[in-house]
């Protein structure tokens, strides 16, 4: 197990929707749920984040923002889509400006269902995501090793 699992920092972006899930994500930070118990911080800075938590469906305006935040995050990184909207577009999926769930724009690792997703399930989703994060870290390490060997071999 790497230290990534012990100190996941997340960045949260509300892509649109009704803001219900948005508020539930913030509820996780309150004394009742207190995600800092797991070392989770809502760091708010993509360059320092490990987990990208997206709520709400992707629309024309939020598309570019989601892509930019994702690209600014250093690997290993994972994406957690929170709520029915972020998973599939939810109740907004047929709107003319909505292209669907977050997976239409960036690769998503964990889907948390619910409308709104409850804080318990959001925390559960993030903790599940930590396994994926660790897996990605291992891949990154192997990749680095392979490149080193390649460089050594010219």
């Amino acid at each position: 197990m790497s230290y990534l699992q012990k100190s996941p920092w997340l960045i949260h972006y509300d892509a649109s929707g009704c803001n219900g899930c948005d508020i539930e994500v913030l509820a996780c930070l309150t004394p009742v749920y207190d995600v800092e118990r797991f070392g989770i911080l809502n760091i708010g800075n993509p360059k320092q984040a490990d987990i990208f938590v997206v709520t709400g469906p992707v629309n024309e305006q939020s598309k570019a923002v989601i892509e930019r935040i994702y690209n600014q995050m250093p690997s290993p990184k994972i994406v957690v889509a929170v709520g029915a909207c972020a998973c599939s577009g939810g109740i907004f999926r047929e709107c003319y400006n909505v292209s669907g769930g977050v997976d239409k724009v960036i690769p998503v690792d964990v889907f948390v269902p619910g409308c709104a997703a409850r804080p318990q399930s959001i925390i559960d989703g993030i903790i599940t995501g930590l396994e994926v994060l660790d897996e990605k870290y291992k891949q990154l390490k192997d990749e680095r090793k392979r490149r080193k060997v390649e460089r050594a071999n010219g």
């Binding site: 230290y3 004394p31 118990r37 490990d50």
Partner: peptide, 17 residues
């Protein structure tokens, strides 16, 4: 803030990460 808070060694985990 009447929370439980992170483990005492959390800053070390953060830096190692």
């Amino acid at each position: 803030q009447s929370r439980v808070g992170p483990p005492l060694l959390q800053p070390f985990y953060d830096v190692a990460k």
